[in-house]
Design a protein around this nucleic acid. Structure first.
Length: 289
DNA sequence: CGAGACCCCTGGCTGC
DNA sequence: TGCAGCCAGGGGTCTC
């Protein structure tokens, strides 16, 4: 479900809600992709929140003199925040609310994830980046280290299609299926182009467009296709600004070729749908072969 | 190393 | 109304 813009939007809500809060108790009702650690209460209860951060699509809640909660929302996960005043009047976990934390002001934070592709793990404080799930993550496109030279280096030697390469979290941390289609459309790059065949000019364009699209999406509160809502329960609006995603057969908004061109195309790569304009995103460059 | 198939799981939608 | 089949914003693991 959530890609970087959605996770970032959730992060901002979570950070505001958890500032200086202390965990009073924690409840686990079901396991996610991996079992929720059964020593969660032992290690987390009584600990104060130090900071809430994000790495790619992972949320990290660091606790003072304690572990760091590592949360991934998978395809269908969301965070439910209930203010203390409301929770004191009575609190009922939602269907599929697999983990609930109660804080010192009675507020609750729940992890709701119907498909259970997400995770909720504990990392040792101070050694978070050594964890296998975080160790190999690529650069976050909103960080300063993400620029054209960096992306050129990342794509060097990559023979796979650019769409699949950009989805690889070791190459760029945080991109997902929606935004990759939107980004390649805006960069006028066909999703099947061999990654290493992109010209420096094209990669430079990508390196500018990737953070630009993500920032615009964050500004709009993310994309809601079916069930995404932020930590306060609000849907995003960026889906209204999608140019190609899930628009097969519809006219590309910037292409004069419709209806002769047949409109936006859908292709499947690595089992996932992708969308592009066949005229604005030509399939081959002279460097491909 | 890379690429592809398969798996995890629930729910919404479509077509019969 | 029921049901089968397909699809979904992610990603780990295994095989070749």
């Amino acid at each position: 479900m959530p890609e970087l813009p959605e996770v970032e939007t959730i992060l901002l809500g979570l950070r505001a809600a958890l500032r200086d809060r202390r965990i009073i108790s924690s409840e686990t009702r079901a396991d996610l992709r991996w079992p929720v650690p059964d020593d969660l209460s032992i290690r987390a209860d009584g600990k104060r929140v130090r900071e809430v951060t994000r790495l790619g699509k992972y949320l990290l809640v660091g606790l003072v003199r304690g572990p760091t909660l590592l949360i991934h929302l998978g395809m269908s996960g969301r965070i439910r925040i209930t203010p203390g005043a409301e929770a004191r009047a009575g609190y009922t976990p939602l269907r599929h609310e697999h983990v609930t934390l109660t804080f010192d002001d009675s507020s609750r934070v729940g992890l709701v994830d119907p498909r259970r592709f997400g995770c909720f793990l504990l990392l040792d404080g101070g050694r978070e980046l050594a964890h296998p799930l975080l160790r190999d993550l690529g650069t976050d496109p909103l960080e300063s280290g993400f620029d054209a030279a960096h992306l050129v280096a990342q794509l060097r030697g990559k023979r796979g299609p650019i769409k699949i390469t950009l989805l690889d979290q070791r190459v760029v941390a945080g991109l997902g299926n929606i935004y990759v289609s939107e980004i390649l459309y805006r960069a006028r790059i066909h999703p099947e182009r061999v990654s290493a065949s992109l010209t420096v000019e094209e990669v430079t364009r990508l390196a500018e467009i990737i953070p630009a699209v993500l920032r615009e999406a964050i500004e709009a509160g993310g994309s809601t296709l079916r069930d995404y809502v932020d930590a306060q329960g609000r849907p995003g609006a960026f889906q209204h600004l999608h140019k190609v995603y899930a628009r097969e057969g519809q006219p590309c908004p910037e292409c004069p070729g419709y209806p002769a061109c047949g409109g936006i195309r859908r292709i499947v790569q690595a089992g996932r749908s992708g969308f592009f304009c066949p005229r604005l995103q030509p399939p081959l460059s002279l460097l491909d072969a």
